[in-house]
Design a binder for these strands. Structure first.
Length: 946
RNA sequence: GCCGGUGUGGCGGAACUGGCAGACGCAGCGGAUUCAAAAUCCGCCGGGCCCUAAACCCGUGCAGGUUCGAUUCCUGUCACCGGCACCA
C-alpha cells in the first residue's frame, strides 16, 4: 500500500498549489483587497486608516529574487492583521520602471526597453500574485506610464517655477520673485557688473533667475561615466566609480539640469528628528548632508584685488595658520599662472594643475602622499600680520567649502603631513590636556589657546577654551569685516539630467538664443518618442540618444506646448534631449497611490489628506504621511533623501499636508546565501563543491578543502534561489512562513533550503488538526481541552503583539507551539477526541490567516465558517487566561539555582521565603548559616544570600 | 582613520524594563508503528565529571567591573558586517 493511498488528503505541495491558485482567483474575482477612497462606494469612514507601503521593485529581466518577498510578506502580514483589527488599509504595488537597470538589461538583450520592461513587469506581477499578497491591484501603475510621468513632469515644472526664499525658509513661486525684481527695478549682477532689471535682456534675466530656481540649469562640475554614457549624481558615485556597474567616473564641467537640494540642507537634517526611522539611516543622511559650523575668513593676497576666502571649523587656530592651500581648480591658481610670480614656478604650477585634473579620484584616494606646488603668491594672516605662502595641492577639494583652506599644521594631521613634506613652519596654538605638544605630530581636538595674542592686530585669546576662542575670533573677524560665522554643508546640488533614453523627458525647450521655456501644464505629458536606436553613446563627451529623434527635437513653441504668452507659437525651438534619472518616478509614487486614476491632479487633495495625515497617540499630527514604509537599506541616501526633498517642496507649495513623506521606515535585512572559500580567500561556486562527511567541504576539481561561508547571492557564485522553484516544491504559504521564520526581519540572515521543511511540516500538522488525511473529512474535537483553550488565548495575544512589533519569527514559534500541543497521536480511537474544537480551530485559522492566507481560507471554508477569512475579525482573548494560578519559580542560593518550587502566582513574599528556607535542596547550601537577605521576585524567582 | 551595528549549541535563532540561558525550527541520536522503508507519533539533544544516574562544575567573542543576581548595565579589548573617508 503506498503512502498516497493511506493519506490521500494530506497537505502536500500539489494540494497547496491547487488551493492557492483557486483562492487567489476567488480573491481577485471578489475584489477582496480593494480599498475604496473617501467618497467612493463601500468606504467606511468610521474606521482608522493605515497606509503601508513597500518599496516598489525595479522589474528586472531576472525576475523576483528571494529578497523581494521578504519585505513584501512582512507588510502583507501586517496589512491583513490591520484589516482584521478594523482598519482601512492602503497597501498598493507598482513598478519603478524607468532608469538604468531596466535600460542596461534592454541593451544586453538587444530588445527595446519598452518591450523588455513591460515583459519584466508582467513577470513580476505574475510572481507577486503567486504569493497571494493582498495588494489593491486596482491602484497599480508604472512610472513609465505616460499618465504617471505626466505628473512627474508636472512636479518638475513646479520646482522649475519656484525658488527658495531664505526669509520664509521655504519654497515660493518664482513669479513672486520676478514681480518683486520688476517692481523695485532692482539692480542685479550681470557678468562682472550690476544692471537694473529693466535694462536687462531676456537672457540676462533668465540667467539671474536660474540662480534661484529649485530646478535650474547650470554649468557644474559633473560626474561623467563614459562607460554608462551618462552623468551621475554624487550619490550614485562610490569611490570614483558608478554605483551601477562599477565603471570609472571622471569629473568635467557640463551644463545640466540641477535640483537646488542644498537649500533644504538644514530642514532635511532637522526634520530627521520628527520621523520614526532607523537610527542608522538618519545618521547616514545627516552625515551625507554633512553640516559643519565654523567661520569664513577672508585673507588679503598680495597683488590681488579679491581676498582669498576660506572655510574653517577651527577659527580659534588662526594664529597657527602658517600657509594656505587652494584646490588646483581654484581661480586663484589661474591668476598665479598668468602672473608667473617666481619665474620658473609658473610652468611647474601649470604642469601640476594639469596633472591633478587628469588624476582620477580613485588614484587620489589610494596614494595619500601629499603633493603640491607653491603658487608664488602670498597672503597675510590677519591675526599675526605675517606673510604666508599660498600653495596649491589636490588634498584640498574644490567641491567643498570655498576650495581653499588656511593650513594649521600644528593641529591638523593633513596640514602637518604637508608641512613636513615641504618644510613649512609649524606653530602650536592649542594646548590639549593629555596630548602634550612634541612637534612630532599634529595634536587635534579641543583645548586652550596658546601663543595666540597680538597687540598690533588687537586679537588676544590666550588661555581661552576652544569654544570661547572660536567665538572670540569670529567676533573679531566680524568687527574687522574680514569674516563671519558660517555653516557649511557637504551636500551638493542634485544633478538631475542623464544622457540616456529610458527616462522621463524634461518638459522644456530652448529657443535660438539658448533660453529655456517651460512646456505648459496643459501640454503634458511630453511623451518619450519611440526610438529604434536607443543605445547610449559611449564617448568622452555627453551625447544624449534622444538627439537622434530629429523630428521630435526640432519643433516649434506652439507644437511643443509653450504658453503663447511666453513665446509666439511659430518660434522654432529644440527640445531638451537629456532625460530625468531613474529616481524621478520614485520621488512621489507613494502620493500617486492615494488616487492613481485622478486625471486632474497629481494626487486628489481629499485622498491625500485621508491617507497621508496621521496622528500620534498623543493626538498631535505626525510629521510623516505613510504609516509604515518597508524596504532595503541601500537607498538610505538616494531614494530616501530625494523623496524627502521633493515632498518638502510640495509641502511648501501647499500641495501636500505633511512635511515628511514617510512617518515610519523599516529596513528588512539582506537574505544571504552560502558560498565556499579557498584558503587563499578565493570564492568557489556552490555547484563546484561537494560535502564529504559532516560539514567538510571539498572542491570537486582538485579536491582542495574549502570553508563554508556566508555570502551575498550572486549569479557568479550560483547560489541564487529562485522563488518560483521554492513555491513549486512547497507552495506559497510555506515560502511566506519560511522567510518570516528565518529570524528577525531587520537582520541579515542566510537562506538555508534544508530548513524550509520545518515550517512545511508545521502547516501539515495544522492541516491535520482540521482535516482527516485518510478521508478528507473535517475533524474537530468534541470538547475543548481547558489547557489548550488557555494556550490558544495566549497564542492569540502573543501573535497580535508580535505582528505589531514586526516580530514574525516569534509569532510563528507561538503558533507552532500551539499546534504541537494540540497534535493528536497517530493511533487514536476516535479522531474527534483531542485536537481543537471547531470554534477553537476557527480562532486559530484567523491568527494563521495573515501568515498563510491560502491554507487559512481553505480551512475556514471547510470548517463551514461564513464568508472569507480575509474579512474575519481578529479573535479576542481573555486577559484572565494569560496568567497562571500557580507558577514554578527558581530558588537560588548565592545566585545559583538549587531548586524549583510551585507556588501560587500571588503568594506573598514571606510565604515564598518560608517555603524556600525549609526546602530540602536549599538547607545544605545554607551550611547552617543564617541567611543575610532573601530576595523574592514575585512569580519569577527567589534568591537567598548567606 | 571616523560613525553605526552585530558576536548565544553542529546550524537558523529565543530570552518583556537586569531575574530559571538555549523557546521554536533544522540537523543528529533513540524508541513506537511497519515484513521493510517512507510518513507519522513519542523521547533525547551546550560542555565537563561519570559505567549510568544523582550531585557538582564550566558556559552567551575575550578581560575586568557594578549587583543578591549580568546574554542584558559600565570600562577596556578582539573579530565580523554596513556606511563615510584628504570634507578643512
Amino acid at each position: 500500500m503506498s503512502a498516497q493511498n493511506e493519506t490521500p488528503f494530506r497537505y502536500t505541495a500539489a494540494v497547496a498549489e491547487e488551493l492557492e491558485t483557486r483562492w487567489q482567483a476567488a480573491w481577485e474575482a471578489g475584489n477582496a483587497y480593494r480599498q475604496p477612497n473617501p467618497g467612493e462606494p463601500g468606504f467606511d469612514g468610521s474606521k482608522p486608516k493605515f497606509y503601508c507601503l513597500d518599496m516598489f521593485p525595479y522589474p528586472s529581466g531576472a525576475g523576483l529574487h528571494v529578497g523581494h518577498p521578504e519585505g513584501y510578506t512582512a507588510t502583507d502580514i501586517l496589512c491583513r492583521y490591520k484589516r482584521a483589527k478594523g482598519f482601512n488599509v492602503l497597501h498598493p504595488m507598482g513598478w519603478d520602471a524607468f532608469g538604468l537597470p531596466a535600460e542596461q538589461y534592454a541593451i544586453q538583450t538587444g530588445v527595446h526597453p519598452e518591450v523588455t520592461t513591460k515583459k519584466a513587469i508582467d513577470n513580476f506581477r505574475r510572481q507577486l500574485k503567486r504569493f497571494g499578497f493582498s495588494y489593491d491591484w486596482s491602484r497599480e501603475f508604472a512610472t513609465i506610464d505616460p499618465e504617471y510621468y505626466r505628473w512627474t513632469q508636472w512636479i518638475w515644472l513646479l520646482a522649475y517655477g519656484s525658488w527658495f526664499d531664505p526669509k520664509a525658509n521655504a519654497a515660493r513661486p518664482i513669479a513672486e520673485l520676478e514681480a518683486a525684481l520688476a517692481k523695485e527695478d532692482r539692480a542685479i549682477a550681470v557678468g562682472g557688473a550690476t544692471k537694473k532689471w529693466s535694462a536687462c535682456t531676456k537672457r540676462e534675466r533668465q540667467a539671474y533667475l536660474d540662480g534661484f530656481r529649485l530646478a535650474y540649469i547650470g554649468t557644474q562640475t559633473v560626474n561623467w561615466c563614459p562607460k554608462l554614457g551618462t552623468v551621475l549624481a554624487n550619490e550614485e558615485v562610490i569611490d570614483g566609480r558608478s554605483e551601477r556597474g562599477g565603471f570609472p567616473v571622471v569629473r568635467m564641467p557640463l551644463r545640466q539640469w540641477m535640483f537646488r537640494i542644498t537649500a533644504y540642507a538644514d530642514r532635511l537634517i532637522s526634520d530627521l528628528a520628527l520621523i520614526d526611522w532607523p537610527e542608522s539611516t538618519r545618521t547616514m543622511q545627516a552625515e551625507w548632508i554633512g553640516r559643519s559650523e565654523g567661520a569664513e575668513i577672508r585673507f588679503a593676497v598680495d597683488g590681488e584685488s579679491e581676498p582669498l576666502t576660506v572655510f574653517t571649523t577651527r577659527p580659534d587656530t588662526l594664529f597657527g595658520a602658517t600657509y594656505m592651500v587652494v584646490a588646483p581648480e581654484h581661480p586663484l591658481v589661474t591668476h598665479a599662472i598668468a602672473r608667473g610670480e617666481g619665474g620658473a614656478d609658473a610652468a611647474r604650477l601649470a604642469e601640476y594643475v594639469a596633472w591633478a585634473k587628469n588624476r582620477a579620484d580613485i588614484d587620489r584616494q589610494e596614494a595619500k602622499k601629499k603633493t603640491g606646488v607653491p603658487t608664488g603668491l602670498f597672503a597675510v594672516n590677519p591675526a599675526t600680520g605675517a606673510r604666508i605662502p599660498v600653495w596649491t595641492a589636490d588634498y584640498v577639494l574644490m567641491g567643498y567649502g570655498t576650495g581653499a583652506i588656511m593650513a594649521v599644521p600644528a593641529h591638523d594631521e593633513r596640514d602637518f603631513e604637508f608641512a613636513k613634506a615641504f618644510d613649512l613652519p609649524v606653530v602650536q596654538v592649542v594646548e590639549i590636556a593629555g596630548t602634550p605638544w612634541t612637534g612630532e605630530a599634529a595634536t587635534c581636538g579641543e583645548g586652550r589657546a596658546v601663543h595666540s595674542a597680538n597687540a598690533a592686530t588687537g586679537l588676544a585669546i590666550d588661555g581661552l577654551a576652544t569654544a570661547d576662542a572660536k567665538r572670540a575670533v569670529i567676533a573679531w573677524l566680524e568687527a574687522k569685516g574680514i569674516g563671519r560665522l558660517r555653516v557649511n554643508y557637504r551636500l551638493r546640488d542634485w544633478l538631475f539630467s542623464r544622457q540616456r533614453y529610458w527616462g522621463e523627458p524634461f518638459p522644456v525647450v530652448f529657443d535660438a538664443e539658448g533660453c529655456h521655456w517651460p512646456v505648459s501644464n496643459a501640454a503634458l505629458p511630453v511623451v518619450l518618442p519611440a526610438l529604434a536606436d536607443y543605445k547610449p553613446v559611449e564617448s568622452d563627451t555627453p551625447q544624449p540618444p534622444l538627439a537622434k529623434a530629429r523630428e521630435w527635437v526640432h519643433t516649434t513653441a506652439g507644437e511643443a506646448g509653450v504658453d503663447p504668452a511666453l513665446l509666439p507659437p511659430g518660434t522654432p525651438v529644440v527640445r531638451e534631449t537629456n532625460t530625468m534619472p531613474g529616481w524621478a518616478g520614485s520621488c512621489w509614487y507613494y502620493l500617486r497611490y492615494c488616487s492613481p486614476h485622478d486625471s486632474g491632479h497629481f494626487v486628489a487633495p481629499e485622498a491625500e489628506r485621508y491617507w497621508m495625515v496621521s496622528r500620534k497617540k498623543s493626538g498631535e499630527p505626525h510629521a510623516g504621511g505613510v504609516d509604515l514604509y518597508v524596504g532595503g537599506a541601500e537607498h538610505a541616501v538616494l531614494h530616501l533623501l530625494y523623496a524627502r526633498f521633493w515632498h518638502k517642496v510640495l509641502f511648501d507649495l501647499g500641495q501636500v499636508s505633511t512635511p515628511e513623506p514617510m512617518g515610519k521606515l523599516f529596513h528588512q535585512g539582506l537574505i544571504t546565501s552560502h558560498a565556499f572559500q579557498r584558503e587563499d580567500g578565493g570564492l568557489v561556486p556552490v555547484d563546484e563543491v561537494e560535502e564529504r562527511g559532516e560539514g567538510q567541504f571539498f572542491e570537486k576539481a582538485g579536491g582542495a578543502k574549502v570553508a563554508k561561508i556566508i555570502a551575498k547571492m550572486s549569479k557568479s557564485l550560483r547560489n541564487v534561489v529562485n522563488p518560483d522553484d521554492v513555491i513549486a516544491e512547497y507552495g506559497a504559504d510555506t515560502f511566506r512562513l519560511y522567510e518570516m521564520y528565518m529570524g528577525p526581519l531587520e537582520a541579515s540572515k542566510p537562506w538555508n533550503t534544508r530548513d524550509i521543511v520545518g515550517v512545511f511540516r508545521f502547516l501539515q500538522r495544522a492541516w491535520r488538526l482540521a482535516v482527516d488525511e485518510r478521508t478528507g473529512a473535517v475533524l474537530c474535537a468534541a470538547h475543548a481541552d481547558p489547557k489548550l483553550e488557555k494556550q490558544l488565548h495566549r497564542m492569540v495575544a502573543k501573535v497580535g503583539q508580535d505582528i505589531e512589533s514586526l516580530g514574525f519569527n516569534t509569532a510563528i514559534a507561538a503558533m507552532i507551539e500551539l499546534v504541537n500541543a494540540a497534535t493528536r497521536p497517530t493511533e487514536m480511537a476516535d479522531p474527534a477526541q483531542g485536537g481543537l474544537t471547531r470554534d477553537q480551530l476557527g480562532r486559530f485559522v484567523c491568527v494563521l490567516a495573515p501568515f498563510a492566507p491560502h491554507m487559512a481560507e481553505e480551512l475556514w471554508s471547510r470548517l463551514g465558517f461564513e464568508g472569507s477569512v480575509t474579512a474575519a475579525a481578529w479573535p479576542a482573548y481573555d486577559p484572565a487566561m494569560l496568567v497562571d494560578d500557580e507558577v514554578e519559580i527558581a530558588v537560588q542560593v548565592q545566585g545559583k539555582v538549587r531548586a524549583r518550587i510551585m507556588v501560587p502566582a500571588k503568594a506573598p513574599p514571606a510565604e515564598v521565603e518560608a517555603l524556600t528556607l525549609a526546602h530540602p535542596d536549599v538547607i545544605p547550601h545554607l551550611a547552617g548559616k543564617q541567611p543575610k537577605k532573601v530576595i523574592v521576585v514575585p512569580g519569577r524567582m527567589v534568591n537567598v544570600v548567606v
